[in-house]
Structure formats: structure tokens, C-alpha cells
Design a protein around this nucleic acid. Structure first.
Lengths: 146, 146
DNA sequence: GCTACACACTGGCATATGCCAGTATGTACT
DNA sequence: AGTACATACTGGCATATGCCAGTGTGTAGC
């Protein structure tokens, strides 16, 4: 017999959780994807596009596209690197930082409700598993398994 | 302290697994998302668009868009329902069924490697958790938790 | 300095996904 | 039958994500 597709189930759960979190963030005008991106940029110290892309396991050009609306709306800016002229660094603008603080309240509420409904301990375990699947180590192991 | 975003981590893992499975399916010309869709349609008995959308937790209009390329390529067809003229049912064409059988081999390989690297038992548990998160019950519980 | 090659990003095209505003159809109530 | 409302889908617009083919820039070897 064949097992249900792990990838399909992961995507399905992503859609569900995306819808749920997006509902909570609706008032902010940010999608959860955008909030997560801004939040991640805030946690890193003016990362290069590549560093950011690696961290969130996103294709470099996909990241570029995704950043466009956020740049247009003035939340983030791309700064040329001082050393290497090929490199651009991603930074939050003042407006972006403000937006992040505001939106964090809505996000916290979604997150809190998730933890309540799903269970804090289970959520922590789930995040651990998801981190493992998102690691380069996992990709390597997978690729070496052939 | 604040926990890492459950939704962001889920999406990140989805991107990773998507890339991994897509690599395996590359030779088929189908994306994993498309394979999963065809496979799901095959498992259901000529579902209506709405039934299919509910099952995979996808917005109805998003589903409509996603089906377009597969219809264009002749893998699936939309059939009018006999009883209710508002309704359209989704069916695999002969070509679609053939493609499904062919592509299943590649998918099985990805799935098998996943189970090997991640562990069969852990994978089963993960799917269980993902199914829970994808359920309408979960959405209801979440919405009622406010 | 020149040539190859590696690396970082950009642009174009395609699919994935969602929201909202229609359009068509069915159903309930009068 | 007629009106009001519910339901199923469609189309337009926007973002999310990926691949591939550039373009510009650094670097190693000659």
C-alpha cells in the first residue's frame, strides 16, 4: 500500500494555517507571509538577499519578487553592500519597524490561540520537526539517500 | 519571550519539501502540486469543484485557477453535473490517468526516500498532526477560542 | 592585464493561492 | 409566478514561489 503524500499534507496544512493566521492579521493589511518576512529581516542584521533567502529556504529570485510589494509600500529597503558591489542588503525602514511592532500584536494573538488550541508542548515539538525538515542537513541526507 | 511563528515554520518546511519532491518529479514535467491534485482527483469519484476544494483546503477560485494548466494539457476535464446545473465535476481524462500512473513511480521514489531519511514511524505521526491541523474541526476550535 | 570561472542579483515567464465582485442557478416563502 | 436569499462557479487583480537566461562584479591563474 502507498502512504499519503507527505508533501501534499504539508502544503494542505500550510494553506489552512495561512488562512487562519491571515484572518487574524487582516486588520493590519499585511499577509502572514509578509509579516513573517519583515519579522525575519528584523531578527537578522541587515542580511544580504542570499543570506535571507537561505534562511527562509526560498529561491533567491522568488525572494526578490516577494520583496517588491514591501519595498513599494516603504517597509523595507535594499542597501548596496560597502565591500562587494554585487551584494544588496535588506533593511527595515522606520515605517517598517513601526508596522512590525503594530502587527506583532495581532500575530501574537494568532500564535497564542494556536498554542492554546493545539497545545504548547505539541506546538514546540512540531516546530522542532519542521525545523529539521527545513535544514540543509535534511536536504543533503535526502539527496545522498539515492 | 515569544515563540517562533508556527505558520512561518510550516511554510518554510513546505518550500523545502516542495523543492525536494519537485526534483524527483522533474522528469515527468509535472510539479508536485499538480501530481498531488491529479492523484487526489483520482481518489475521489468525480468530485464537484467545491468538494475537491474543501478536501484539499483550497479556496474555490484558487482551485479553478490551478486546474487551468492541467485542463489545457488535457489531463483533466470539467463535466457538468446532471442534477444541478451550477455544479461542475472534475474528472481525469484517459491521458490524465496514464500520466498519473507514470508519475506515480517518481513520486513513490521521493516518498520512499523521505520515509527512509525521516523515519516511517515519525512520518506517520507527522501526517497525523498535519491532518489534524487541516481539519475543519481545528479551524472551528481556533475560531471559537477567541 | 587577460581570460575563465564563480557569485549575486534581476527580469521574464509560469504556476500556486487568495480575495472580491460578478453571473447563473437553485430553493424557500408568499 | 415572484421575490429574496443561498449556492456554485468565473474573472480580475494581487501576492507567493520557482526556473532559467541574462548582466554585473569579484577572483584565481596565466
Amino acid at each position: 500500500m502507498s502512504t499519503p503524500c507527505n508533501n501534499a499534507m504539508l502544503r494542505r496544512a500550510s494553506r489552512m494555517l495561512g488562512q487562519i493566521y491571515d484572518d487574524e492579521l487582516a486588520a493590519s493589511g499585511l499577509k502572514t507571509t509578509q509579516y513573517s518576512l519583515i519579522s525575519q529581516i528584523d531578527r537578522m542584521n541587515e542580511p544580504t538577499l542570499r543570506q535571507l533567502a537561505m534562511e527562509i529556504v526560498m529561491d533567491l529570485s522568488a525572494l526578490g519578487h516577494t520583496l517588491k510589494p514591501l519595498i513599494r509600500d516603504g517597509y523595507i529597503a535594499l542597501l548596496p553592500d560597502a565591500e562587494d558591489r554585487r551584494v544588496k542588503r535588506v533593511a527595515l525602514t522606520k515605517l517598517g519597524k513601526t508596522k512590525l511592532r503594530e502587527t506583532r500584536r495581532l500575530w501574537s494573538q494568532a500564535q497564542k490561540r494556536f498554542e492554546t488550541v493545539f497545545g504548547e508542548s505539541r506546538a514546540a515539538k512540531l516546530r522542532q520537526v519542521l525545523a529539521e525538515l527545513s535544514s540543509e542537513d535534511f536536504r543533503q541526507s535526502f539527496n545522498r539517500s539515492e
